[in-house]
């Protein structure tokens, strides 16, 4: 079993959490990452510039029909849902907000679960609403691996708590421990396949 993608969902406090999570990942990190941060619709590209300064992966807003590639952290553009298609490309939609959110974590996670099945890691970080828990459940149901930030140490606990209530998650970890766990999972899965 080899992981083909990582999806991250977070809201309030999420920018710092994503920075921490990705800070030590190498520029050629072998698994593509897609993230939904609940951003204000008028968020400008500064966010991308800022993240690119602080982490080694290439950070960019996911574009419609763009191929998912390793070494990249794709961010869902503000005011669009981000979905993944069977051919490993992104698609965007302006469907109604889900959980009052567009982009919605559930939308990304559910489509990613369909495409990557057990070959995906879904991560829910700090946040002040319930978006993402149903998406994480779909990932779990399809055999993927689920990680939730420890609600006791997360900046905002509601989103992690909602996910834990909805899904029997595989790992509940402090933000500093998540990167190591991800590395360990990748390493272990590589050993199994070779």
């Amino acid at each position: 079993m080899k992981y083909e993608a990582i999806v991250i969902g977070t809201s309030a406090g999420g920018l710092d959490a994503v920075k921490t999570l990705c800070a030590h990942l190498p520029a050629d990190f072998s698994v593509p990452i897609a993230a939904v941060l609940h951003l204000h619709r008028n968020t400008k590209d500064d966010l991308i510039t800022l993240l690119n300064r602080e982490i080694r992966l290439t950070v960019k807003y996911a574009e419609d029909k763009e191929q998912i590639q390793k070494g990249c952290l794709f961010i869902a553009p503000p005011d669009y849902h981000l979905l993944i298609e069977d051919d490993r490309t992104f698609s965007l939609s302006v469907d109604e907000p889900v959980n009052y959110s567009r982009p919605s974590i559930d939308v990304l996670f559910e489509s990613a679960a369909d495409v990557f099945r057990e070959h995906i890691i879904g991560i829910i970080l700090t946040g002040a609403n319930k978006d993402g828990s149903l998406g994480l459940r779909r990932i779990k149901e399809r055999g993927g691996t689920t990680i939730v930030e420890n609600p006791r140490t997360a900046q905002y606990s509601e989103m992690p708590l909602a996910a834990i209530a909805e899904v029997e998650v595989d790992y509940i970890l402090d933000i500093n421990e998540i990167t190591n766990k991800v590395m360990e999972l990748l390493l272990r899965s590589k050993c199994k396949t070779s």
């Binding site: 979905l83 298609e85 069977d86 698609s91 939609s93 469907d95 939308v107 559910e110 489509s111 369909d114």
Partner: peptide, 8 residues
């Protein structure tokens, strides 16, 4: 049509 949205 893009399938992921149709599926939803």
């Amino acid at each position: 049509y893009a399938r992921a949205s149709i599926k939803r």
